[in-house]
Computed example of a mutant assay.
Amino acid sequence: MPALTQEGRAKVNLTLRVVGRRVDGYHDLESVVAFADCADTITLTPGSGLNLATTGPLAQACGEASDNLVLKAAQLLRERVPDLALGDFTLDKVLPVAAGIGGGSADAAAALRLLALANGLELDDPRLVEVARLTGADVPVCLASNACVMTGVGETLLPLSLPKMPCVLVNPRVPVATSDVFKALGLRNGQLLVSATDVLRGTAWPEAGGSLEEWVEALAAEHNDLEAPATRIQPVIGDVLAALSASNGAWLARMSGSGATCFAIYENTAEANRAAQKIQLDHPQWWVHAGVLS
């Protein structure tokens, strides 16, 4: 069988509400998730073994291969699928790590899609879905990589129809550990951050076919509950948000996930490209991407 290739697209949390912390310590979330047009690339060359090699500009940031979620996902699937065909994975790493855009989760999800292709499995195979959930909270949403409302600990996904959103993503090349951000949030086991009434009320998102303006207005009424604690841990996040907010044509600027990547939404791609060029010129050490969310 020839080599197979998939992309691990960056996940962007357009909103992120922490509903509360369960008695088991996990946090219940509600998040509108979109996916960007920047991605890692992962290739599977079918074979008898299971190996991972990393290449690309950010390969060194991946750490030890044995700790990579790609191998974790493959090993978990091998435990559940008899005679699973595996092989050699190559990960071309271009997305920053520990960045709030699900890079490692997107890579693991791409690896699962490759194994599904190599073994004739459907993406809704219960074993594949279970492995995605066990590999990491963001892996289920990255498996399909479609815009949705993600709730619970990431296992419940409600599809959304988003317009194309011109955007700029900026990461100051400072990693932020998700566990540190949730610790800084300071919820006790069993503590709710919002009332039951708020949970039931929810947010009425625009219907399918809603305009970019309608979506930005709706998104602006929400927020990211992790933005404040993440900024306390890494104050440079505030600098990134300020740079995005000050750029011409920025309609909305916010942090994604647990940081430190932030995004801004623009009226059109020309404004997004101009903003990205200026931010990159002013901050050459930052990772900057101009593109489209969908």
Rank of each mutant, 00 (worst) to 15 (best):
P2F: 09
A118S: 08
G152P: 06
L200G: 10
T43L: 09
G104V: 02
A196D: 13
A184L: 08
R254I: 00
W215N: 00
A65R: 07
D67K: 14
V94K: 13
A59W: 04
E30C: 10
P206I: 01
A250D: 00
E271D: 14
G209W: 05
S105M: 01
S161A: 15
A108E: 06
T54R: 14
C38V: 15
D125H: 04
T151L: 00
T41N: 04
P235K: 07
T203M: 14
A204E: 14
G257E: 03
E64W: 09
L192I: 02
A106I: 08
H283Q: 13
L115K: 00
S145V: 00
V153K: 11
G259H: 00
L219A: 08
D138M: 03
S161Y: 09
I237M: 07
A246Y: 02
A110F: 03
A230R: 04
A53C: 13
G209N: 02
L162P: 09
A59G: 02
L52E: 06
L50N: 08
E122T: 15
C167I: 09
L157W: 01
E222V: 10
L212P: 05
E207M: 11
E213N: 11
I101A: 05
G100F: 04
L114F: 00
R80Y: 03
V181D: 01
T55H: 11
Q280I: 08
L69H: 01
D124G: 12
H289C: 03
I42P: 06
E217K: 14
E213Q: 13
E222H: 12
L50H: 05
V23G: 11
E213F: 09
E271F: 13
E64T: 13
N171Q: 02
I233G: 06
L241D: 00
R113V: 01
M150S: 08
A276F: 02
E213S: 13
W251S: 13
T54D: 09
L226W: 03
V292N: 11
A10E: 05
T90L: 13
M150Q: 08
Q60C: 12
M165E: 08
P96E: 04
V240F: 00
Y266E: 01
A108T: 02
P96C: 07
P284E: 01
V81S: 03
D282M: 10
L193R: 15
A118P: 01
R274G: 11
Y26M: 08
A110H: 05
L114C: 07
R201D: 10
A221F: 10
L192D: 15
A61S: 14
E217P: 09
A204G: 10
K183T: 14
P235W: 08
L162V: 09
A61F: 09
V94N: 11
A196R: 15
R78P: 12
V131H: 07
M165Q: 10
H27T: 07
P172L: 01
N146T: 15
L76S: 10
L226Y: 03
K164E: 12
D180P: 10
F263L: 07
K183S: 13
A98P: 06
A177K: 14
P82R: 12
G136R: 05
D83F: 11
W286M: 06
E207W: 01
S294C: 12
A253C: 06
D40H: 08
Q277R: 15
P126Y: 07
E271K: 15
R232D: 11
C38K: 10
L160W: 08
L226F: 02
L226R: 04
S256V: 07
A218Q: 09
T55Q: 12
L252E: 05
